[in-house]
Amino acid sequence: MPMKPVIPVGSGKTLAPYSPGAMADGIVYVSGTLALDKETNVVHVGDAAKQTEFVLEQIKSVIEAAGGTMSDVTFNQIFLTDWANYAAINTVYATYFPGDKPARYCIQCGLVKKDALVEIATTAHVGKR
């Protein structure tokens, strides 16, 4: 099955040549998502919880544009700039995955935007229920 870009209505610019999501054979791959406005400026500077919420809402919009829901998420890759924000990120994250939790990993690293505190990339299976 060919790959189909997934671009939610109202999406802003991207930082590089990529789509917010891509779907193939019922699997949605959501690109690494930062808390960026439509002009690629970081929002909620200094607030890891608010950035996490913003990121997860963006991810949710990609999955919904592909016909899925957050309960279809099977894997998350989480990147944070400081372990001091780990608890705040997890508190928000848990509200988006209240039932069975998807697999995930979390690493500390530098991110492409200086004020970004968290980035999440997601995989969801929406085509086969």
Rank of each mutant, 00 (worst) to 15 (best):
V55M: 07
W83I: 04
Y93K: 15
Q51I: 02
S19V: 05
T123N: 03
S61R: 14
K113G: 03
I89S: 08
P102H: 04
G10R: 02
A116C: 01
S11M: 01
G21S: 05
G67A: 04
R129V: 08
G26W: 10
R129H: 11
Q58P: 02
A49G: 06
P8L: 04
K114T: 00
L56S: 09
S19H: 10
I59R: 10
L117H: 09
T14D: 01
K4C: 04
A84I: 11
A16S: 12
E57C: 02
V118H: 09
A16M: 08
L56K: 06
C109N: 06
G127F: 07
G99Y: 14
G26C: 08
K13G: 03
C106W: 10
A121K: 11
G12D: 12
T33Y: 00
C109L: 12
N85P: 00
D82C: 06
V62A: 00
P102Q: 07
S61P: 05
G127V: 10
P17A: 04
V92S: 02
D47Y: 11
K60N: 04
G67C: 03
V42F: 12
P20C: 03
P2N: 13
D100Q: 15
A84Y: 10
Y29L: 15
E53F: 00
V42W: 08
P102K: 13
V92R: 02
N85S: 14
P98S: 09
K128T: 09
E57A: 05
G10C: 01
